[in-house]
Design a protein around this nucleic acid. Structure first.
Lengths: 127, 127
DNA sequence: TTACGTGCAAACTTTTTGCCTAGAC
DNA sequence: GTCTAGGCAAAAAGTTTGCACGTAA
């Protein structure tokens, strides 16, 4: 895998992100630094990273693929209106994972959890 | 909500399915009974059912929307090597969501949870 | 110099929308 | 008879692919 500026920037952007990001989002963020960057390049690289296990590819509830750094273990509560996010400190899954490993035979090493809702500010604004 | 043959058939098809089904899948299954059925009708109805809480809309790991009976809320366990997936019927979050709503002031209405690990077959192969 | 990476445009897939007719109430 | 539902076709939105050129090794 060759080391190009764009490739490095894309990976850095995923890693620096809090929570999963879409190809489009990364594309936007890199527009300034790389005005000629193509969206297809972002897709191709993300796909490659996912294959090589550098990032995790997942589908978010809006139906678009999002990518997350493997070391990103935080869970978020994100507002579906203003996209603000709150990081959660608790994770209810560690207990469950052990039971699931027994039941399924998988070795579980990671999970991705994001909750969606409407934040207090947006609820207020709606009235 | 009017009661039409097609609408009833679509809902019945979701309910009869074990696990989530896509619009396309339902469309295929109803082709024989309703040769003139349009795919857009399937989409419109599924969307409507989801809004009214009759079915649950979810994104499966391949990126397409799938719909499941309301009582069939589930999550996926996916193998990071061969990408095989198992669907789980357990969800530890319903209990947690209520607590989080209190703590954060958000109204939580959905969540996305996927677990990653290595499946039994891949573990075997690794040896 | 060779092969991999990238931009651009076009293709593809899945989902949504508009418009007009058909059918439920 | 009125108003919702549905068929058809086209449009959107997201993602992938082919090709020619650029660039890392």
């Amino acid at each position: 895998m060759k080391n190009t500026q764009r490739r490095a920037a894309i990976l850095a952007e995923v890693s620096a992100s809090q929570g999963p990001v879409s190809a489009e989002e990364i594309f936007q963020r890199l527009q300034e630094r790389f005005p000629t960057l193509a969206l297809s390049t972002v897709y191709r690289n993300l796909e490659r990273f996912a294959e090589d296990g550098l990032v995790e590819k997942e589908t978010s509830p809006d139906g678009v693929f999002r990518y997350a750094g493997k070391d990103d273990h935080g869970h978020y509560l994100v507002c579906t209106q203003c996209h603000s996010r709150v990081r959660l400190h608790e994770c209810p899954l560690s207990a469950m994972e052990e039971k699931l490993e027994e039941e399924t035979g998988f070795s579980i090493d990671r999970h991705q959890l994001t909750l969606y809702g409407i934040c207090p500010a947006c609820k207020e604004r709606e009235k």
